[in-house]
Structures are given as structure tokens and as C-alpha cells.
């Protein structure tokens, strides 16, 4: 049986932990709101660009631009988005495991699969499991998920693709569903696959192109890649905050439960001590009589 002092000490330490998890939850909640707003604000741009691109690509032959042409299965690049920091539930583990699975499943399909990892946690998870696949690691870029960051990433990938270093590029990230639900999502970035548009609406629009259709397309395609990375970054960021918020929420709740249990134990021990003392006094008084 632990002494009164011991129990009191434990209550104190659990309380401290609870304070930290509570604070982390608050911070995550505030960050989540901002990240969510950013993700929502980025949607119209991506959607418009997508529709413009679909319109354009439909009129072009399949392989009129290198970024559109299917080159068959050669070397693939997988861009994995994780967080730099932990304490966010299964956020990093889920997406990292999915990356490992992707590599295992597609080993036969491709000559090689290279990994570019965004975020420290993904690197830590995968460096012992698939060390030979990791080609590049970007750390600490999540904190400022700006368009510029995504653009740099996008340009790098487009350059590598055009130099035929890779024949297919995928991105793997946590899509934001709600604060509790994140969905691990795999998207093909390159070659670009424009969404099909309905025929009848497409007929109505025949643009004048300035300077030419080809040049507009050549301009817009790399942009599409950048935007896709930007969206993945924002979604992943929002997901991370959401995951951390719910993880810290349940941690705080567990701490509260533990404090209740310990308090009960403490009170019982206190009462037992008092009873014991009383009995000693009474029996002492008895013996004097």
C-alpha cells in the first residue's frame, strides 16, 4: 500500500501532465482553425484551374505535352507528407505505413520507387524500414505551408519528370475530413490526368488562345502540379492539427480519470490512517484503566 505522501505526489504529477495536454489541445485547436481556413480558401483556385485544364486538355492529343503523356512504368517517385512533431495520435504512423505498403505492393510494377519525405516523423519511421528508397527529406517546411514552398517542391518534381528521371509521381498525404477523421490519400501527380468533362458543355466553349493553345497548356500544366502539392500541404497541415487536438483531448480526459481514481485511493488511505490512530488511542486509554 503506497503511503499518503506517495499518492499525493502522483496526483500532483498527473495534474501537471494534464495541464500540458490541455494547453497543447488549445494550441492545436487554434492552429486547426487557421489551417482549415487556409485549406478551404485554396479550394476555389484549384477547382478553377482544374476546370480550365480539363477544357484545354480535351482538345489536345494525348501526348501533346510531356507532362500529359503516359510513359509506362519505369521509375516512380512517391512524395510523402508527414508532420515534424509527434503527439498527434496515429497521424504519422498511418500515412508512413501506407507509404511502406505502397512500396511493397508496387515493387514489381516499377523499376524503382524513390521516396521524398516531408516532415521529420516520416523519416524517423521509414529510415529503418525502407532506407534504400529514401532520396530526399524536407524538414520544418510544414510550419509555413506557403504557396512558395509548394511551388519549389512542384518545380523540382516537374524538372525531374521532364528529365525523365521519373515516369510517374505520386503524393501520399492525410486528407482532412474533420478534426477526428483523417483519410490517407494517394494521388497521382504526374503524368497529369485531366478530369473528363461532359461533352455537351465542352462543345459550347471554343476559346481564342493567347498566345497559342500549346503555350497556354505548357504554362498551365506545371502550375497544376504546384497547386496539387499546395493543397496536399494544406490538407496535411490541417489534418495534423486535428489529429493532435483529438489525441490531446483524450489524453486530458484520461488524466482526469486517473486523478479521480487516485483521489479516491488517497481518501481511503487517509481514513484508514485516522481509524488506526483512533484505535491506538482508545486501546491505550483502555489499558490505563
Amino acid at each position: 500500500m503506497p503511503s499518503l505522501k506517495d499518492i499525493k505526489k502522483r496526483i500532483g504529477s498527473v495534474k501537471n501532465t494534464q495541464q500540458i495536454t490541455k494547453a497543447m489541445k488549445m494550441v492545436a485547436a487554434a492552429k486547426l482553425r487557421r489551417a482549415q481556413e487556409a485549406a478551404v480558401a485554396a479550394r476555389p483556385y484549384a477547382e478553377k484551374l482544374q476546370s480550365v485544364l480539363s477544357n484545354l486538355a480535351m482538345r489536345e492529343e494525348g501526348d501533346s505535352h510531356p507532362l500529359l503523356s503516359q510513359r509506362g512504368k519505369g521509375r516512380a517517385l512517391l512524395v510523402l507528407m508527414t508532420a515534424d512533431r509527434g503527439l498527434c495520435g496515429g497521424f504519422n504512423a498511418n500515412v508512413s505505413k501506407a507509404a511502406e505498403r505502397f512500396i511493397k505492393e508496387n515493387e514489381q510494377g516499377f523499376e524503382a520507387i524513390d521516396l521524398t519525405i516531408v516532415g521529420r516523423k516520416g523519416k524517423e519511421f521509414l529510415k529503418s524500414r525502407v532506407p534504400e528508397n529514401i532520396k530526399q527529406v524536407h524538414e520544418n517546411i510544414m510550419a509555413e505551408a506557403t504557396y512558395k514552398t509548394a511551388a519549389l517542391l512542384g518545380q523540382e518534381v516537374v524538372d525531374a519528370y521532364q528529365a525523365e528521371t521519373y515516369d510517374a509521381v505520386f503524393v501520399l498525404y492525410n486528407a482532412f475530413q474533420s478534426a477526428i477523421v483523417q483519410i490517407v490519400t494517394l494521388e497521382q501527380v504526374l503524368p497529369i490526368q485531366p478530369k473528363e468533362v461532359e461533352e455537351d458543355t465542352a462543345d459550347a466553349i471554343d476559346y481564342i488562345y493567347e498566345p497559342t493553345r500549346g503555350e497556354v497548356l505548357a504554362d498551365i500544366l506545371p502550375k497544376m502540379v504546384e497547386v496539387q502539392f499546395f493543397r496536399a500541404l494544406l490538407e496535411s497541415n490541417a489534418s495534423e492539427q486535428g489529429a493532435r487536438m483529438s489525441a490531446m483531448d483524450s489524453a486530458s480526459r484520461n488524466a482526469a480519470e486517473m486523478i479521480d481514481k487516485l483521489t479516491l485511493q488517497y481518501n481511503r488511505a487517509r481514513q484508514a490512517a485516522i481509524t488506526k490512530e483512533l484505535m491506538e488511542i482508545i486501546s491505550g486509554a483502555e489499558s490505563i484503566k
Partner: peptide, 19 residues
């Protein structure tokens, strides 16, 4: 500011796509 120079747009313009 269109790619080929200033561009004026009024209602009823033909479909156009430019950088």
C-alpha cells in the same frame, strides 16, 4: 495585362483564354 498586350473586355466577349 494580357500576354500579347493590354486587353479590354466588355460584356459579350468571345470565349478567350490567355496568360
Amino acid at each position: 495585362p494580357g500576354y500579347l498586350g493590354e486587353l479590354g473586355l466588355l460584356p459579350g466577349h468571345t470565349p478567350l483564354l490567355t496568360t
